[in-house]
Every structure is written in structure tokens, then in C-alpha cells.
Nucleic acid binder design. Structure first.
Length: 356
DNA sequence: ACACGATCACACATTACTTCA
DNA sequence: TTTGAAGTAATGTGTGATCGT
């Protein structure tokens, strides 16, 4: 018998949990499981985890047959309760904001749902002085300081290296920032991916060529809140969702993608911290229990030497129930003529097997 | 059917920047 | 005003899956 502690990537093949797992929705979240089982099964868990990396954090450690469910920090508000029906597939369960798709209309303030105002970006270009566009900014009537970072300064990105007075924005970038969804829809996923990777607003090759360092955008509270709401619905995005979200927030798809990646990382980190705390507690408890048992063993040994007729006393042993892998208290009464073994009904639920 | 390259999405580690005490 | 820590946007890299040839 071994004690297995699984941290992070939750084991999937716990035998006594299999029946119930099939009834549970597959949740894309981290779980924690501490289980007591045979070593062979533990190895199976580990092997499965290694060979099935993609699914490892999609599956919870099911423990419905256990009295104590694994500690699970529900950091993800979208996590369904165990007894709830599984969420419909993404196609059937659109984002709340999908019904609020707004094509940014340059020159007019676009109001999104949830009270989030997103002002379309417009290229500021003065044909009189022939200066290159300094900034892609929101409406000049925008006086909300909180939306300052909405006024993304694209001048460093799109600044023409030749100093041409013509609008130096590349067509694709211009279309992106003005939210041309028709254009976006026309792009293949691959093109969009390549575009977003090439055209990240910071650290682009253009910037590198200009010798400009990376400039960090600070998302506004509104943007963060909106992304957070989306994350509650799904912690991953398909390309279309990403584009819609990026368009709504006047961010680049790559930025939305990065935000979700970092958000997943933060969630996992917090879950890991909770797991560690729980493991620490478990370790302390087990250490204390071990200490107690060692002491008890010493006392029994001392008793054995002092009382030679101890054999007439019923011996209590701990055995493992093969079906549910719980420790069962077994009392054996040894007599000189015969040996009878009876499995006692557990007095305490913690060391008994009520179902067998 | 199989191999191969291109592409994508993701996790993860890390860097760089911002904010705040 | 300076500074260090914390938070986080962004980058780089590696890996597995998918698709077209």
C-alpha cells in the first residue's frame, strides 16, 4: 500500500472513481487529488498523464465515491458544479458578448454591452501640414482618463521609415484597428495567425528595425473586466471568438490571445499554491499520524514482552478492501484450536468500509 | 497509406514594463 | 524622490495536433 499524492496534473484512472467520472462533465480546470491506492495503479496514473498531456488539465480527479472530495480551488467561475449537466459545446453556447458584436464605426462612439464603452480608433492625419499620423486615438471627446490606454499610440509602429507623408499604415493593420469584421472574416485562420504574430503591436520586426524597445500596454479596467467575463465563460478562445473579442476591445487578436494565455497561467499558479498548502497540511497530518502509530507500536511491543498471554487478546489489523481500496478494521480471535476471522463493522467511518 | 513540411494553439519560462507602498 | 516588490503584458521556445502535398 502506498500513498500517492498527485499535484497539478490530476490522475485519471482511479479505479474507484471511474464510475462516477463518466457522469461528470469534463471540466477544463485543474484539480488536485490525493489518493491511497496500489502502486501499480499509481504508475498507471503517471503513465497516463505523461502520455495524454493534452487532457491532463481538462480532467478532474473524481472522488465522488470518497468521503472527502479532493481539495479543489474553484478559481474558474465557469466551473460547473459536479452535479450539473455538462455545458453545451462552444458552438451551442456562445459568449454573452457574441450577441453584442459591434462593428466599430469610425467616427461614432460605439457602446458595447455590459456598460463598456469602446471608442473606435481613428487615424489622426492632418493633410494640411503633411505630418504623418501621430496617433491612432479614440474620439477627441474622450475625457475619461481610465480609457487612456485605449488611445494606443501606433505612431511608433506604423511610422514610415521613409518619412513619407502618406498614411503609412499597412492596409491590414488599418483594417484591424478600425474593426473591419468583413475583412477579418475573409481572412483565413492561418492568415490571421500569421498576421497577428507578425504584427504584434509591440516587439514587431518593424520596431526592431527601428531600434524601438517593447512598449507595454496597460489594459483598462473595462478591458480587463470584459476579458475576465469572457474567461469565465471559456478559458480558451477559438480564432473567431478571439477576433470578435479583439474587435470589441480594440485590441489585437494577439493581445487577446496573450491575455488568455497569461490568465490561464495565473489560474494554474494559484491552484498550485492551494495544492501546495493542502499537501503541506496533509504531510503534517500524516507525520503526526505516523508518529502516533509508531508510539502505539512501541507500546504494544512493550506490552508483548510484559504480557506473554497477549495472543489471547483479539488482534486488530488493518486491511485494504479490494473493491473500494479503503482501510478496513479486521479483528482476529486466535484460539489454540482454531482461528476465526471476522471483519467488524467499522466503528469509525474513517477506517471502515461502509459499502462493503 | 505514409512521410513530410507548414501552420497553429498551447504551456511554460522568462523578460520588460508599470504601479505602488 | 528613490527603490524594491508585485503584477502583468509581451516574448521566446518547445511540443503536439492538424492539414495539404
Amino acid at each position: 500500500m502506498e500513498l500517492a499524492l498527485s499535484l497539478g496534473d490530476t490522475p485519471k484512472t482511479i479505479s474507484f472513481a471511474d464510475q462516477s467520472r463518466s457522469q461528470q462533465p469534463k471540466m477544463k480546470e485543474l484539480g488536485f487529488c490525493m489518493n491511497v491506492g496500489s502502486s501499480s495503479k499509481i504508475q498507471d496514473h503517471q503513465h497516463k498523464n505523461f502520455s495524454d498531456k493534452k487532457d491532463d488539465d481538462k480532467t478532474n480527479c473524481s472522488s465522488s465515491s470518497s468521503d472527502q472530495p479532493p481539495l479543489q480551488l474553484d478559481l474558474l467561475p465557469f466551473s460547473p458544479a459536479l452535479n450539473q449537466a455538462p455545458p453545451p459545446p462552444p458552438s451551442d453556447r456562445p459568449f454573452p458578448w457574441l450577441s453584442q458584436i459591434v462593428i466599430a464605426d469610425p467616427g461614432s462612439q460605439t457602446k458595447l454591452g455590459k456598460g463598456l464603452d469602446v471608442k473606435p480608433l481613428t487615424a489622426v492625419y492632418d493633410p494640411n501640414n503633411g505630418e504623418e499620423p501621430a496617433t491612432l486615438q479614440s474620439s477627441p471627446t474622450d475625457s475619461n482618463s481610465d480609457t487612456s490606454s485605449f488611445q494606443m499610440d501606433f505612431s511608433s509602429i506604423f511610422r514610415s521609415s521613409t518619412g513619407s507623408s502618406r498614411l503609412p499604415l499597412r492596409n491590414r493593420d488599418m483594417e484591424l484597428v478600425t474593426g473591419n469584421m468583413d475583412y477579418l472574416a475573409g481572412l483565413s485562420e492561418r492568415e490571421q495567425r500569421v498576421s497577428s504574430r507578425r504584427g504584434g503591436y509591440v516587439g514587431t520586426s518593424d520596431e526592431d528595425e527601428n531600434g524601438l524597445g517593447r512598449k507595454k500596454l496597460r489594459l483598462t479596467k473595462e478591458q480587463s473586466a470584459f476579458l475576465e467575463e469572457s474567461f469565465k465563460e471559456h478559458n480558451t478562445l477559438n480564432p473567431k471568438q478571439k477576433l470578435v473579442l479583439a474587435n470589441q476591445l480594440n485590441l489585437r487578436p494577439r493581445q487577446v490571445e496573450v491575455w488568455f494565455q497569461n490568465r490561464r497561467a495565473r489560474t494554474k499558479l494559484k491552484q498550485t499554491e492551494v495544492d501546495c498548502e493542502y499537501l503541506k497540511t496533509c504531510c503534517e497530518t500524516l507525520t503526526e499520524e505516523n508518529r502516533r502509530l509508531q508510539k502505539e507500536l512501541q507500546e504494544l511491543r512493550a506490552l508483548k514482552t510484559s504480557q506473554p498471554f497477549y495472543m489471547q487478546l483479539p488482534a486488530t489489523t488493518l486491511t485494504m478492501c479490494p473493491s473500494c481500496e479503503r482501510v478496513v478494521t479486521t479483528t482476529s480471535t486466535t484460539t489454540p484450536a482454531s482461528t476465526t476471522t471476522t471483519t467488524s463493522v467499522p466503528q469509525q467511518p474513517t477506517n471502515g468500509c461502509p459499502s462493503h
